[in-house]
Design a protein around this nucleic acid. Structure first.
Lengths: 347, 347
DNA sequence: GAGGCTCACGAAAACGTTTTCGTGTTAATA
DNA sequence: TATTAACACGAAAACGTTTTCGTGAGCCTC
């Protein structure tokens, strides 16, 4: 049985299309008799208006486009769950595009969606885009009147709403926690500086140290290549961390900029006969499934991904429904929170 | 600058809309001169046809609807990544709906998308749907001529293409591995039977035991409540597992139907002073991030989520492009694979 | 009984495409 | 020179809605 349309109902009931449309929208232009008859018929055969036709007519699709670098990723999925939640509550759908950290795929995906399929974008740019600093696809879609909300990996130069994590502050909190627990020699395991969040978290680490009047020891800083957090390179990763711990046995606290670095640090510390948290305390960034189920449980900086998604969706929909793509733009900072577990417990 | 349309180009160049359309599609009905002029203009101002208008005209949206129970979930995201890959290669977009394991949300989401927004569904039903056994939303969309491909949690009674994991066989493989490594007393940590995959994996466990002529010891079977794998109930979960291991010290192998159960088992075994894999070997199901980064690394049954997604998308698009919603339907079984790590290594 | 009103409905345009079918002009043919 | 064919383009319909603007019929008023 094919989909019912206004035209078919009109034909069946021997009235005009306009009458059917009006009756279904309860226009009192139509007599109660006809209205009831049409509504009964529509209900009986389960008429639902065609979204595409509505989109074309209204020139809005009630759909948000979300572009992320990766989907097999705890943080991004929590963000999506937040986006989906408010989108659904406010009557919107969510269409997802993956850039796989590739600039080209990001551009193609956005172009594909920008031609009428969606009303606005929520996006976190790919690493390659950050590297190339080529933002023409962003400025062009904004110029065409399509609003964008960036999250997490936001770009200063682009004029649009943003929802970001205060990476510096989150790292500062974490390191401060270690300090307050008595750690005197705190190491950091981070990425090379071209990864923006890695750089920011390193900054937070440095800030916390100076604020606490702790000396900065360059040997305590391990900057790793970004590719090392794949399973295939796990042993290399572990070697590097082992070296850090072996060469600096006085280290009594570790701040790692992601879960994997933190877990590896715990593993290597244990291997070296150290006990956690007694001899060495560890804090990671991103409160994902690894932190929760690690042994011992890993204290970590939660970024509240769901909140980020919710806020981003709200910002975007607000802008769509007041349709002004003009400034002023907001930048919302979502507070991080330290989730404490066994890796930093007092005893 | 608003979006360019055929009409605007036509006006600007003082020709008719049809001429513009034809010129852009390289019709030789139009003289080379006019064609070139129009194409140059379109390129200059970056004309892209409006997808919504095309969708309405062609009565197809080139968009797949994906409905899953949860998105913060390793398995489902790998499936999505597979779907997205194929969809993109074949010129389709992906729109995502989350049921959150709720029957009602599943129905609403599907109805929202079924009215023209998408060409077909890829879905894994919610637990509640499995429980209620109410499939009217599925049969109705199929009756309306919209194809569905179900994956993982498929429903026998529904006539449509399916991509499934052979849970029984995967579990059998895992238990056989334990047997071949010399385990004599193999326990299982599974869910209550109403969770379909839990039940199937339990069946596989039982099959393997009988095939190996190992006695079935009811005490070795721990069936847990589904809600225990949230962080909040972790201690309860661990207590139950601890009891299993304490009461049955002869257990030398554990098969767990998910990663969390497996990790908890390893944790409790270590607490009891057992060594892994020497005293007790452990295998989990679903090869996610936890298995990879656990200490020791957890051997687990990989479901090849990405392949599942790829296959599902291919099946759906094939059906769409040959547009026949009629039988015969395929059920594709994606083989599982045992990923071996330290938790079952020989020494 | 003529004018004006209300009522209940239909025609048509619009959203942005594609495509079929004319149609007027020019050039080639008989 | 008259007929035809090829060429280059335009008008209009269609996809499924919503909405504006008519309009005919019946009624009331003076």
């Amino acid at each position: 049985m094919q989909k019912l349309t206004l035209k078919k109902i009109a034909k069946e009931l021997d009235v005009s299309i306009s009458t059917v449309s009006k009756a279904l929208r309860d226009s009192h232009e139509i007599s109660k008799d006809t209205r009831d008859k049409i509504k009964a018929f529509a209900k009986l055969y389960n008429y639902k208006p065609n979204n595409i036709a509505l989109s074309l007519k209204n020139r809005k699709t009630k759909t948000l486009g979300v572009i992320i670098p990766e989907i097999v990723h705890h943080f991004f999925t929590t963000v999506i769950s937040g986006i989906e939640k408010v989108a659904n509550e406010r009557g919107y759908n969510v269409i997802i595009g993956l850039s796989n950290e590739s600039f080209t795929k990001e551009v193609i995906n956005m172009e594909m969606l920008a031609n009428g399929s969606i009303d606005g974008f929520i996006l976190s740019v790919s690493k390659e885009t950050q590297l190339l600093k080529d933002y023409h696809h962003l400025t062009e879609t904004i110029d065409q009147g399509m609003p964008i909300v960036m999250f997490d990996r936001a770009i200063k130069e682009i004029g649009c709403d943003k929802v970001i994590v205060d990476d510096v502050e989150g790292a500062r909190k974490a390191v401060n926690k270690l300090v307050s627990l008595g750690c005197k020699n705190i190491g950091i395991i981070t990425t090379k500086d071209y990864v923006s969040v890695g750089k920011l978290r390193t900054t937070g680490y440095l800030t916390a140290l100076t604020e606490s009047n702790l000396p900065l020891n360059e040997n305590f800083i391990l900057k790793l290549n970004d590719e090392l957090n794949e399973e295939a390179h796990m042993d290399l990763l572990e070697q590097e961390i082992q070296l850090l711990l072996k060469n600096n046995p006085e280290i009594d606290g570790i701040f790692a900029v992601n879960e994997i670095y933190a877990l590896s640090a715990m593993k290597e510390a244990l291997k070296l006969g150290k006990s956690i948290p007694k001899d060495i305390k560890v804090i990671g960034f991103t409160d994902g499934v690894l932190s929760k189920y690690a042994t011992p449980g890993l204290t970590s900086v939660s970024q509240h991904g769901k909140q980020i998604g919710e806020k981003a969706a709200d910002l975007l929909i607000d802008r769509l429904e007041n349709d002004h793509v003009e400034p002023p733009f907001q930048t919302v900072v979502i507070e991080t929170e330290l989730i404490e577990r066994a890796s930093t417990s007092e005893i």
